[in-house]
Amino acid sequence: MSAAASHRMGRLEAWLVALVGTTALVVARNYPVWRDHIYVACPAWAILGVPCPACGATRAVAAVLQGELGQAFAWNPLGALAALAAIVLVPIGVAAGLGWITRPQIPTTLGLGARAALIVAPIANWAYLLAAFEG
């Protein structure tokens, strides 16, 4: 593939990501899944009555997109954080793909604190879910 064709494809890919992201945002804003009770129950919760580490994440993402941050963090704190990160990072990625901004440098190594946080955060999140959804 020539450099010009590759550049055109790169821009097309960025526009596609922007289109999919915008569609997801519009659908989620206008269709609050957790209020209509149309969601797939987590097998761990449905069968065992115990929340899995990702329980409530879909509802948390939907709540973030509805602008209800408190409710989102109540459903699943890590899910809410992931949704907020996506809202910030996807437009940056699209802008970088279109050449409007320089591509941000993502660290290739992490310090001990950050690595520990990456391990502790999911554990703490699950502990919160187990306590919050007990019974």
Binding site: I106, T108, T109, L110, R115, L118, I119
Partner: peptide, 14 residues
């Protein structure tokens, strides 16, 4: 990618 970062680093981007 996160696991590679936790276990010592990912030299190339995600």
């Amino acid at each position: 990618h996160l696991c590679m970062l936790v276990f010592g680093g990912a030299p190339r981007p995600a």
